[in-house]
Amino acid sequence: MELGKIIERLIDKPLDEKNKNLLVNRDKEFELINLIINYQPYGIYGICGETGIGKTTVINNIHTDSYTIKISLSQRESQDTILYDILYNISAKTEKDIEISSEIKEWILEEISYIKGFAIGVKFFGNGDISNQKQKTPRFNYFKAKEYLNKLTDELIKKYKKVVLIIDELDKESKKEVLLVLDNLKLELQKEGFVVMVSLPYSIYREYKFDRMHRNESGNLENVIKDIIYLREFTNSEIKEILIKRIKEFIYYFNESVIDLIVDYSDGNPRDAFWITQKLVFEALSKKLSKIDKMFAEETIKNIVNEYLNEISLTEKQKLMIDEDLFPGKKEEILKKAIENKKFPRSTAYSIFDKLLKTGIIIEQNGIYRLSGKSKYLYIN
């Protein structure tokens, strides 16, 4: 059935140069990244955004005149393995150009093989038919690895003058782990002529914003990260454009109002838009429908939301705050209306607002708060 062909168009995978035409409105972010690469002499810079917002897509499409190394981390068990993974990837990418790279690569392979045994060594750098077995906690030579990284970055700068290192997949780690890794590698990575771009967890961006506005405090993030490029959520019109670019050949299967429902559900995140559209298509196929109309889409999305979010427990007062008449708006505007219209005490209104924000029922974009497109199916008839 042709409806099923839509699924392959909605696969959630990062875009590269071949399908760059599917990108929507990231020109500002690319411009800022290029300015940093071209004019900043050194430093660690973050690329932040919510999960599914397109960090890897942006990384895949960074192009620069400087010598650039792009690596994607796969080993993130600890600070040790992250360092080894970074060092191995850089040496593997540069072994044809930098003499010491081959030595480093061989040393890492021997180190891993010695510590974890041949089976774990294969797992670290390739695939193999490996039986499960208990392994002792490895003792990596962390300081020698740092020494090698220091030498390698020196050699790269010496040869190319300006080097750009782009690290993807570090955002999969916790904020604490990422900051420890970057802080411990400051001396090796923060050198004149060496610019590092790294994908970071969204939680780091929130803390970074606060630190930038509060001076004279210990542990400020700007001591580790010089700046962060924030990938904002997409607007509704942008999500609609992203969807239509993907399924334009099959758009006649959807009523326009259905596309609007999908966009509203997504809350500015393409991954959510792709996922819920796939769910609608699969449900339509199971019912042997030839088209997806608004009534079917609303009922299907409502069932899905109830299945996934029904564990959120709210009081009756908290549910009263979930009112479309109060949103969207700035926090103080919403709270003022809640106090006046719902007769909440001021402290209660603030407490409820913070609870709904924490659970994701209220979401924020550029200082404007609104109800999540998903929560409406739970609490608004």
Rank of each mutant, 00 (worst) to 15 (best):
residue 308 Y to A: 14
residue 143 F to C: 03
residue 192 E to N: 15
residue 354 D to A: 06
residue 37 I to W: 03
residue 202 Y to A: 08
residue 252 Y to K: 15
residue 369 Y to G: 02
residue 163 V to S: 12
residue 176 K to H: 06
residue 266 S to I: 10
residue 215 R to V: 06
residue 97 D to P: 00
residue 110 E to Q: 02
residue 218 S to H: 03
residue 325 D to I: 10
residue 224 V to C: 12
residue 157 I to Y: 09
residue 186 K to P: 04
residue 155 E to I: 00
residue 362 I to H: 06
residue 61 N to E: 09
residue 274 F to A: 08
residue 182 L to R: 08
residue 376 K to G: 12
residue 168 D to G: 13
residue 110 E to D: 09
residue 5 K to P: 04
residue 331 K to F: 09
residue 308 Y to K: 15
residue 327 F to Y: 09
residue 373 G to M: 13
residue 174 S to W: 01
residue 160 Y to Q: 06
residue 357 L to V: 04
residue 323 D to P: 04
residue 7 I to E: 02
residue 114 Y to L: 07
residue 123 K to M: 03
residue 43 G to K: 10
residue 37 I to R: 13
residue 268 G to S: 13
residue 298 E to N: 08
residue 190 Q to K: 15
residue 357 L to P: 01
residue 358 K to S: 09
residue 63 H to Q: 13
residue 380 I to Q: 03
residue 277 T to Y: 01
residue 289 L to I: 04
residue 363 I to Q: 11
residue 124 F to P: 01
residue 334 I to Q: 03
residue 368 I to A: 12
residue 227 D to F: 10
residue 267 D to L: 00
residue 286 S to W: 07
residue 148 Y to Q: 00
residue 230 Y to L: 12
residue 235 T to D: 12
residue 326 L to T: 07
residue 372 S to H: 14
residue 20 K to Q: 13
residue 173 E to I: 02
residue 284 A to Q: 03
residue 84 Y to R: 15
residue 365 Q to K: 15
residue 188 E to R: 14
residue 4 G to V: 04
residue 250 F to C: 08
residue 62 I to E: 13
residue 199 S to G: 02
residue 261 L to H: 09
residue 219 G to S: 08
residue 219 G to C: 07
residue 261 L to P: 01
residue 143 F to N: 14
residue 203 S to E: 15
residue 105 K to I: 00
residue 317 K to F: 09
residue 272 D to Q: 14
residue 306 N to D: 00
residue 23 L to Y: 11
residue 263 V to T: 13
residue 12 D to N: 15
residue 381 N to R: 15
residue 31 E to Y: 08
residue 66 S to L: 09
residue 329 G to S: 05
residue 128 G to Q: 08
residue 16 D to C: 04
residue 133 Q to W: 09
residue 42 Y to C: 02
residue 186 K to C: 09
residue 231 L to Q: 10
residue 3 L to H: 01
residue 277 T to Q: 12
residue 198 V to N: 05
residue 353 F to D: 12
residue 216 N to R: 02
residue 187 L to T: 11
residue 301 I to K: 05
residue 57 T to K: 14
residue 316 E to A: 01
residue 107 W to M: 00
residue 158 K to W: 00
residue 283 E to Q: 13
residue 329 G to L: 10
residue 241 E to Y: 01
residue 30 F to R: 15
residue 159 K to A: 05
residue 63 H to R: 14
residue 158 K to M: 07
residue 78 S to M: 10
residue 23 L to G: 12
residue 139 R to K: 14
residue 186 K to G: 07
residue 326 L to C: 05
residue 96 K to M: 00
residue 26 R to G: 04
residue 368 I to W: 02
residue 116 K to V: 06
residue 219 G to W: 06
residue 366 N to H: 11
residue 192 E to Q: 08
residue 234 F to N: 11
residue 229 I to M: 05
residue 343 K to M: 14
residue 135 Q to N: 12
residue 200 L to S: 05
residue 78 S to D: 04
residue 289 L to S: 03
residue 111 E to H: 09
residue 229 I to Y: 01
residue 156 L to W: 03
residue 2 E to M: 13
residue 3 L to G: 08
residue 172 K to L: 13
residue 326 L to W: 05
residue 1 M to F: 01
residue 375 S to A: 15
residue 40 Q to G: 10
residue 360 G to K: 06
residue 327 F to E: 04
residue 329 G to I: 01
residue 347 S to W: 00
residue 176 K to Q: 11
residue 22 L to W: 06
residue 155 E to H: 00
residue 294 K to P: 04
residue 321 M to D: 06
residue 251 I to F: 03
residue 75 Q to I: 02
residue 317 K to C: 07
residue 378 L to G: 11
residue 298 E to K: 15
residue 186 K to Y: 11
residue 30 F to V: 12
